[in-house]
């Protein structure tokens, strides 16, 4: 069974952390992953930097630009991850935009993912329809799960469709926004979290975008299986470096 699905069977609320690979230093990818596992994180999203990250706010954009300047690329990421499975067993997901994968070759990319031990992919600009039609078979051949997004504006019928074609969890975008830390959630989010919970989807939901601290983590996970922290973690990395990871994770739960 895929590591992600196994993790989803645990009864606890899951904490997933996103970071941009190659940031703050090019070779930080592996140390960050190891530290996140040591500090009890449940799942990791490894960001593959892209020049034009449409769905991301300033924090992730800036970390991507910096990583690219430092020489990050798809090839470098796979080299960095080459022996990662001899050191960690935490579920690993690559989150990135579709164009770099397309240029690498989608099948070659999936093969590499399998070789280094990646469990799933999140590709914000690959819509479920196109995935289903053209790429599902390839992903499945290499044992990769694909994670789809829903937002407060996603119509109910479409949520059902996405739930149906999901084979791990649904990435529930907390509000109509690009990525970036918020300090709190309002009544609207609360209502949205409850509305989705009441739909009794077959796929667990993990909330992302705008989770930054214990309060937002708590709010998000009171109605969902887990939550993903990205921008707030990157900000902490910028200020405190890899050594500061433990402090950050302990502040969340």
């Amino acid at each position: 069974m895929n590591r992600i699905n196994k993790k989803l069977e645990e009864s606890k609320k899951l904490l997933s952390i996103y970071f941009t690979s190659g940031y703050p230093s090019k070779d930080d990818t592996k140390p960050i992953i190891k530290s996140l596992q040591e500090n009890g994180v449940d799942m990791i999203e490894i960001g593959l930097p892209f020049s034009d990250p449409l769905a991301d706010g300033p924090t992730i954009q800036e970390s991507s630009v910096k990583a690219l300047k430092l020489g990050m690329s798809t090839k470098v990421l796979f080299e960095q991850l080459k022996d990662i499975r001899s050191e960690v067993d935490i579920p690993l997901i690559i989150m990135g935009y579709f164009n770099p994968m397309l240029q690498f070759g989608v099948e070659a990319f999936c093969l590499k993912c399998k070789e280094v031990g990646i469990d799933g992919l999140i590709i914000p600009d690959l819509p479920p329809e196109i995935y289903n039609e053209s790429y599902r078979e390839i992903f499945e051949k290499y044992g990769l799960v694909n994670i789809f997004l829903i937002t407060p504006q996603t119509p109910e019928e479409r949520i059902r469709f996405i739930d149906n074609i999901s084979n791990a969890f649904i990435y529930m975008v907390s509000s109509a926004s690009v990525t970036g830390a918020k300090n709190s959630f309002g009544d609207q989010q609360e209502a949205y979290f409850k509305r989705i919970a009441a739909m009794n989807l077959k796929s667990p939901c993990i909330v992302g975008f705008g989770i930054s601290n214990a309060a937002t983590f708590q709010a998000a996970t009171s109605h969902a299986k887990g939550a993903i922290i990205g921008s707030a973690f990157i900000k902490h990395l910028t200020n405190k470096g890899v050594e500061g990871i433990g402090e950050f994770i302990q502040s969340i739960r």
């Binding site: 034009d52 798809t74 164009n99 770099p100 397309l102």
Partner: peptide, 22 residues
């Protein structure tokens, strides 16, 4: 340019071998 994706559209675009838009 080479085939790729820019601003939501699959088309010809100028990019690096790694798929970063130039």
């Amino acid at each position: 340019g080479k085939q790729g994706i820019i601003h939501g559209c699959k088309t010809l675009l100028m990019q690096t071998a790694d798929g970063q838009i130039t």
